[in-house]
Design a protein around this nucleic acid. Structure first.
Lengths: 145, 145
DNA sequence: AGGATAGATGATAATCATTATTGTTAAATA
DNA sequence: TATTTAACAATAATGATTATCATCTATCCT
């Protein structure tokens, strides 16, 4: 999807709920929409400062948190305690994560819905979303051994 | 599996690597092996104090961390930042998590290995383990509405 | 069994990502 | 362009986890 389209989607969601569009927020939206590398809050902060230099870290936290509530950004907490964000594709999707270099890939994967269905049947839970990550070594790190 | 068996398994792993068996560690092992409710470090700490009262929180952190490295306890970090542990079944397995009351179920689920295989083929990653959680409402919380 | 020693412990200080606070600024609306 | 009030920047507070270090003890050796 075109990053610009993503920005417009997010803007629509904000306006719909009467949240204000500020230059700081716009800078954060643009950064998130263009990011394909699952940035941390601090990563986003560094990029945003280039677009709107006086933006504070707290504002990045608050805006990312707001977008998370609006389901316009996907939060990924990792075992080491760090949080990373996907604003390009905010729907739940599987990840392959390199335990060495931390590179993340987001391939399309077949029917997780089937698993979700099975889980729902076995537990009686009404399921809304999920999280699926695979941990291993990326091709590059396998060679480096 | 019998909790006592699990304690012995963990003891074996510790001895195998020349880690010492202290009363504090034994109390932590027993608590983990018997726990079916995915306790937090502090939950474990509270229980352990009943078995060996002078145990400190730091020791619980260190022992749980050690067992994690030995793959004898499964760490579950949650979106709210909290960490919970499964010492009863330390192999990766899917969870159904209630977003309201936080109740966790661990049903057997069919072939995740297939998905893992697919992921490996599509990314070239050599995959060692995974994490699969479904988020929704448990039967009780659905009724409470 | 007794002693030596390296690993484990307890108590607490330090860390650090995140959240809360507060006075100020500016987006939205008429 | 004046009003209202959400959003802002700067920074203090929080709280879970980790580090530190003096003391203690599980294990090994004789």
């Amino acid at each position: 999807m075109d990053p610009q389209k993503r920005v417009e989607e997010m803007l629509y969601k904000l306006k719909e709920r009467d949240f204000r569009i500020t230059p700081q927020r716009l800078a954060i939206l643009k950064t998130l929409a263009a990011s394909k590398g699952h940035p941390s809050v601090d990563d986003i902060y560094q990029e945003v400062k280039a677009l709107f230099p006086t933006t504070s870290l707290a504002t990045v936290y608050k805006t990312v948190s707001l977008l998370k509530e609006l389901n316009e950004v996907l939060e990924l907490g990792f075992p080491d305690g760090s949080n990373h964000y996907d604003g390009y594709n905010p729907a739940p999707h599987p990840h392959a994560i390199c335990i060495k270099c931390k590179k993340i890939m987001d391939p399309e994967l077949m029917n997780i819905d089937e698993l979700s269905e099975e889980m729902s049947k076995k537990t009686g839970y009404k399921i809304f979303h999920h999280r699926l990550d695979f941990f291993g070594l990326c091709p590059a790190c396998q060679q480096k051994n």
